[in-house]
Design a protein around this nucleic acid. Structure first.
Lengths: 171, 171
DNA sequence: TACCCTAGTGAGTGTACAGTCACTCCCATG
DNA sequence: CATGGGAGTGACTGTACACTCACTAGGGTA
């Protein structure tokens, strides 16, 4: 599926650093046919980003299921753990980082906001936590992006330990 | 100064979306001369990023000065306010977002980690706050990046209000 | 057979960009 | 005057990329 290839390739190279030909190659079709399926490069990126948020939502739901009937904070905590596991391989996380950096392309900004909205609404609705807890949930998710994208979680320095505390990293 | 131009231009277009010619134009010198001053495009980006962190550190210091002799959390809070004011114009913030997305380019990842280290160490040392408070400080800073870069802080929806609560946005 | 439709491609076009190089201009010093 | 060197550039090269277009192969249906 082309959207999956777009997800993987854009996650590696970013929007400007990935060519349509890269995605065509991974999808085993010609660049020309990619443009038959998606009118512009942006549409391709958006398709990848939507697939990314689909996977995230699935993981959050699975995490919440595992903490059924617990108190709101516990459900949120379980979701956080599921998310931390999910982004172990950096793909979904890097795509979000790239999306943020090209959020000024209208179509992409729109898709990014829609994804964040889905996550926020789901976290709030499914856990029943109060607004502050949901905000903190998202804030620490963003911290996680910084740590993993910049490989800070692999460092041993004191400052890195402060930032990474309580956040697992792939071993 | 070329580093200032690099900061401004890379903040607008990102690493791959900005040409050396753009920066040359804004610096009022020829592209050829840019390459006399900086051997590679990456070096230019790094110079801009360092200038960015210099400005941030200055702002944090000014914020901390304004809260002299107060308790650690108050100092940290004042720094947060100073930071929120500083990134009103999106430039410094967007450059960080772009840097994160190309952190896999070794020279850039290095510079980004160095900048985050400076901020973390300064926040910790100057406020005297405990590790958890410093981690939270950085996490909410990252949330701030998401909100501003994706224009979420300008939205009126309920989910956007949850995420933006307590974070001022330019009016 | 004649027709059409879906899935797909090869070969290109025009443009834009990182990086190079030989060169000029001008000023300071002996 | 000569000469050396810092500041700066015009013109170029090779490559890479988004996007287009005319085309084919093959299967289903009348």
């Amino acid at each position: 599926m082309v959207a999956a290839a777009a997800l993987a390739e854009f996650a590696r190279g970013g929007y400007h650093g990935t060519t349509v030909a890269d995605i065509a190659r991974q999808s085993r079709i010609s660049p020309a046919y990619v443009f038959k399926l998606f009118p512009r490069k942006e549409s391709l990126f958006v398709a990848g980003l939507q697939a990314c948020f689909d996977q995230i939502l699935d993981a959050l739901a699975a995490g919440a299921d595992a903490a059924q009937n617990q108190r709101p904070d516990a459900v949120l905590y379980a979701m956080g753990g599921a998310y931390a596991d999910l982004i172990r391989d950096r793909t979904l996380l890097m795509l979000q980082a790239h999306a943020l950096s090209v959020a000024d392309i209208p179509e992409i900004g729109e898709a990014l906001r829609a994804g964040v909205a889905r996550i926020t609404n789901f976290a709030k609705g499914r856990s029943g936590a109060d607004d502050d807890a949901v905000q903190r949930f998202v804030a620490y998710g963003q911290l996680c992006h910084l740590l993993v994208a910049a490989h800070i979680d692999e460092l041993d320095d004191a400052w890195a330990a402060i930032l990474s505390h309580g956040i697992r990293h792939p071993d």
